[in-house]
Computed example of a mutant assay.
Amino acid sequence: MSKVRELQQRRGWAWTVVVGIVKPTLLALTKRDWRHGEKVPATGGCVVVVNHISHLDPMTLGHFLYDHGRLVRYLTKDALFRTPVVRHVVRDAGQIPVRRQTEGAATAFAAAVDAVRAGECVGVYPEGSITKDPEGWPMRGKTGSARIALATGAPVVPIGQWGAQEVLPAYSARPHLFPRRTTHYLVGDPVDLSDLADQPLTPELLREGTDRIMAAITALVEELRGERAPAVRFDPRSSGINEIGNPHQQKREHG
């Protein structure tokens, strides 16, 4: 279990409310296996990149980072900013709206870059959605996290996670609360993108950076699971699956 750190940032009312509700709930309902949390920078701008396995894991990751002294700003689907009550919370908590698969994603990128340059911790799920790999492995990543990192020069901190999907399975609304499941987090060393810095952000360069990020995350997940990931990462597009949304629902609709 990695050693926790005290939060140095001002929380604001939204974070105070969320921490007051979510943290005690997670402490009561889950067990924790947290490793190398000290590798998350205590201060300064950084990009935290992590695999996505459940609708629960933004809360478990937020708990992990909070107990290691950081408030995370996620790139969050913009629908939450139109949801009653929730919209006030995500705005005050500094979350960043992103309109996936639209030109509006550029606005989210600019906001993320500004946040990192202001010394904040920005959390990115490079896959863009909960993994659609049949065995839950990290799938092919999108280039946003590499783009933010190369635009800011900030460290890219990879985190592998496993276990949240046992509490709340992917694309399910039915949690499995008992017996208590364990959420596993393992932090790796920053991804080295130094040789890609100060170069034109071509699609090839961004893909190289993204592949390094996904390789680092996948290696951490392999360590947590004690298994080897497939040699080729799952790609929804080449598999005929929409990149966002519930893949099981899509199969039923087209079945």
Rank of each mutant, 00 (worst) to 15 (best):
R11A: 15
A14G: 10
A14I: 00
W15V: 00
T16Y: 10
T16F: 13
V18P: 06
V18D: 04
V19Y: 12
I21L: 09
V22H: 11
T25Y: 15
H36L: 01
H36C: 02
A42R: 15
V48K: 07
V50A: 10
H52N: 01
H52S: 01
S54I: 00
D57I: 00
P58C: 01
M59A: 06
T60C: 04
G62T: 05
G62C: 08
Y66G: 01
L71Q: 07
V72I: 13
V86A: 12
H88S: 10
V89C: 03
R91G: 14
D92L: 02
T102C: 14
E103R: 15
A108I: 03
F109K: 01
F109W: 06
A110I: 01
A110N: 07
A111Y: 14
A112K: 05
V113H: 10
A115L: 00
A115I: 00
V116Q: 05
V116C: 07
A118E: 11
A118L: 11
A118C: 09
G119I: 04
G119L: 02
C121Q: 05
C121W: 06
P126D: 07
S129Y: 14
S129K: 11
I130C: 07
D133Q: 04
E135C: 05
W137E: 00
W137G: 01
M139L: 12
R140P: 03
G141V: 04
G141H: 08
K142T: 01
T143C: 06
S145H: 09
L150K: 10
T152I: 08
P155F: 10
P158K: 05
I159F: 12
G160Q: 05
Q161K: 05
Q161F: 05
Q161R: 06
G163T: 01
Q165G: 05
E166Y: 15
V167A: 09
L168C: 02
S172D: 03
A173P: 15
A173K: 15
P175E: 00
H176G: 04
L177R: 10
F178G: 00
P179M: 01
P179H: 05
R180V: 04
R181I: 02
D189S: 06
V191F: 08
D192N: 14
S194R: 11
D195L: 01
L196T: 08
L196V: 05
A197T: 10
D198S: 12
D198H: 13
P200Q: 08
P203W: 10
L205C: 08
I213F: 10
A215T: 14
A216D: 02
I217E: 13
T218D: 08
A219L: 07
V221G: 06
L224T: 08
L224F: 09
R225D: 04
V232H: 14
D235W: 14
R237L: 15
S238Y: 13
G240F: 09
G240T: 06
G240P: 09
G245H: 11
P247A: 03
R252D: 02
G255A: 13
